[in-house]
Simulated scan of single mutants.
Amino acid sequence: MPSLLTFTTDTLLVRPWADDVVDRLGFDPRSPYVEQFWLGILGPSTTWLLRRVAAGFDTAPDGFELPLGETARALGLGDGLGRNAPILRSVNRMIQFGMALATGEGELAVRRHLPPLARRHVDRLPPHLQEEHHRWQEAELRTTEEDQRRRCRQLALSLVELGEDPEAVEQQLLRWRYHPRLAHEAATWAARQVEKKS
């Protein structure tokens, strides 16, 4: 197990941890998803610290100095900055759960967005939240499929309106890596739409 981060100064230089996938698919620390599902995993102090850092990135996107004592007091974690200080435990929980990374002496890279819970984290939730997370995943999957279908149809319609026949449209959609079933359905749908207009 990695050694715990300790502080040698009363400030911490915080920079954003760039991660294209998590930044695109993840959740702002202030989002309902984080409050509902991550809170019980990370704990309230760590969740509030991540929210405080997210607010800091709003005004200083490239990073900022986090005053540890002031932040600890604002979060109700007392004044101490010693080895067992609550603020230190919160920072180390961010690192433990992959939300932050120590990048140097007194420096920390922190995620702007939190990823969806991994299976091992979902298993730690109370049963009612496990079920709620399962429902959320199913709804997210349906939304994603609907968005893909809508986008695929829009592209197909544009191609048909430009004079492409349905077979050529379907082949182009396949080249753009749409699922074959979706590409065929969108090309057929687009051809019917243009026929109705003429």
Rank of each mutant, 00 (worst) to 15 (best):
L66E: 05
A183I: 04
Q130A: 10
R150G: 05
D79M: 06
L101R: 12
T143V: 04
V169C: 02
E146M: 13
K197A: 09
Y178T: 01
R51N: 13
T71W: 02
R120W: 07
E105W: 00
A72H: 03
Q148D: 09
D20K: 11
A190C: 05
E140F: 13
S158W: 05
E131Q: 14
W48Y: 15
A156R: 09
E140W: 13
L125F: 04
L117D: 01
L66R: 12
G56I: 13
A18N: 12
R73F: 05
R73H: 09
E146S: 12
A100Y: 02
E164K: 00
Q137V: 09
D123S: 10
D62Y: 09
P126I: 06
G80W: 02
R177N: 07
R124L: 15
L25F: 09
V194I: 07
D19K: 08
G69W: 01
V21P: 00
T47A: 15
L66A: 08
E35C: 06
H184P: 00
L108G: 03
S45L: 05
L50T: 10
F7W: 10
A168E: 09
R142M: 13
T47C: 15
L49A: 12
M1W: 03
D165E: 02
L125S: 05
R119W: 04
T143E: 14
H121R: 06
G76F: 11
E185H: 08
T188P: 00
L129C: 04
G104D: 03
Q130R: 15
A102Y: 00
G163V: 01
T46M: 11
G80K: 04
L155K: 10
R119I: 07
P32K: 07
V21Q: 08
G56M: 13
Q36R: 15
F57R: 14
V14Y: 06
E185D: 14
H179I: 00
G43F: 14
M1G: 14
R120G: 01
A100I: 01
M94C: 10
L173F: 02
V169R: 01
V21H: 09
G76C: 11
R192K: 08
L81W: 03
Y33D: 12
G80H: 04
P29L: 05
A85E: 06
R135K: 12
R52P: 05
L108F: 02
R52S: 14
D165T: 00
V14T: 08
A186Q: 00
R151S: 06
L114S: 08
P32F: 07
P166K: 02
L81N: 02
V160Y: 05
A100Q: 03
D19F: 06
Q171H: 09
L155V: 07
Y178I: 04
E164H: 00
L50M: 15
